[in-house]
């Protein structure tokens, strides 16, 4: 078995997530935090929010990428060890949503990531905000898609 396949299988067991609130309205961020609390409790599945991109397998972006945080997002992605996945939570992260015409937005989140890594793996979870159940379903799809 190739090393890369093995690493992906290992990642499936307990994906650690680094959450970057890029410039959303807080709503997605709170629903993401909600996933950690007693009713949904994704820690049961080994999913954890971690404090540094260097510890993370999944980069979770919520909100449109504003000019202010575009570089920070790219840096965070580059600091993550491979194999890595990007989870875009919320309509704004997926397609810029209501911010499509805003002067402050640096571009769709997927483009901002693809600029630094052409082969990035992206998973989209649309919704305004997606309910915790939807976010969990997104994570499950992500895990199914890996190896």
């Amino acid at each position: 078995m190739a090393i890369s396949t093995l690493l992906l299988r290992a990642l499936k067991k307990s994906p650690w997530v680094f959450h970057v609130g890029t410039s959303g309205c807080n709503n997605c961020d709170i629903e993401i935090a909600d996933c950690m609390t007693p009713r949904f409790d994704v820690e049961r599945f080994g999913v954890r929010l971690v404090g540094s991109p260097r510890h993370a397998d999944v980069l979770l972006l919520s909100g449109p990428i504003s000019r202010g945080c575009r570089r920070a997002v790219q840096e965070a992605y580059l600091q993550m060890p491979a194999p890595k996945v990007v989870l875009l939570v919320g309509t704004c992260a997926c397609s810029m949503g209501i911010y499509r015409d805003a002067y402050s937005v640096a571009g769709p989140a997927d483009q901002v990531i693809l600029e630094v890594d052409r082969n990035a793996r992206l998973v989209y979870v649309p919704g305004c905000p997606p309910k915790p159940e939807t976010i969990i379903a997104g994570v499950v799809k992500l895990l199914e898609a890996l190896a």
Partner: peptide
């Protein structure tokens, strides 16, 4: 200022 979004301008449109 990291998450300045320009919503007031959008509201005017």
């Amino acid at each position: 200022g990291y998450i300045h979004k320009g919503l007031e301008r959008l509201a005017e449109q």
